[in-house]
Structure formats: C-alpha cells, structure tokens
C-alpha cells in the first residue's frame, strides 16, 4: 500500500512539474494546485499508513480501542489545505486579472526585452 502511495505521490509531483513548465498561465495555476495536492498527500502519509484504525476514538468503546491513527498529520493537512485554498483563490483572481489586463494567457508573449 505504501509503495502504491509513493508512486501516486511521485506521479502527482511529475504532473505538477510538467504543468508548471508549460507556457500557459492557466496550466501554471493547475500545476500549483497539483503541487499542493501531492505535498498534502505526502504529509498525510507521514503519520504512517495504518488500515482500519479510526482517527477518532469512540468514547463508548472503553479500553477496546487502543490503536487510533495519529491525528496530528491530519490536523496539519487541514491547516495546509486552508492555506492552499487561500493561495488557489488568490491565483485564480491573479490569472483573471492577468488575462483582463494583457489579453493573453501565454507567459512567453509577455517576456518583452528588459528595458534599462
């Protein structure tokens, strides 16, 4: 299972880097999103991948449930997700403004020679 997850995370990183290197700013933002998904997934598996152990202990179960999965990485991801949400929202507005202002989504068309 963890090998599968490692491959999945690596794949997500590959996708994000491919998208980041494209010229279109829309793909750039998609790349940013994939980058944060891959990282969040990695953070999630940092707590160790345990099957069938709940994140919340049932208070009525008494001493039967000893093993719960580590809640900290999940809390960390929640924070990272919220930050990712803010960044995604910002970059959406940014590409929108970018398009309105310049009329293009191609980053290369903008690289006018440095004036100095």
């Amino acid at each position: 299972m963890s090998l599968l997850m490692a491959i999945l995370i690596g794949f997500l990183y590959a996708v994000s880097i491919y998208l980041l290197l494209r010229r279109s700013i829309v793909k750039l933002v998609l790349g940013i999103l994939f980058l944060s998904y891959a990282t969040n997934l990695m953070l999630f598996f940092a707590g160790g991948l345990t099957e069938t152990s709940p994140a919340f202990a049932d208070p009525n179960a008494g001493a039967e449930i000893i093993q719960t999965s580590d809640p900290l990485p999940q809390a960390l991801i929640l924070t990272a997700l919220v930050i990712g949400f803010g960044v995604a929202a910002f970059s959406m507005v940014l590409i929108y403004r970018f398009y309105k202002e310049t009329g293009t989504v191609d980053l290369d068309e903008l690289s006018e020679p440095e004036k100095s």
């Binding site: 919220v82 803010g86 929202a89 959406m92 507005v93 929108y96 309105k100």
Partner: peptide, 16 residues
C-alpha cells in the same frame, strides 16, 4: 472569516 472571504473573492471575479 472563511464565508466572508469566499463570497468576497467570487463576487469580485463574477462582478467583472
């Protein structure tokens, strides 16, 4: 905060 932020951002984009 989150509700306000979501509404603010999406209204800004939709408005134009």
């Amino acid at each position: 905060t989150v509700a306000g932020m979501l509404v603010k951002i999406i209204f800004t984009v939709m408005e134009e």
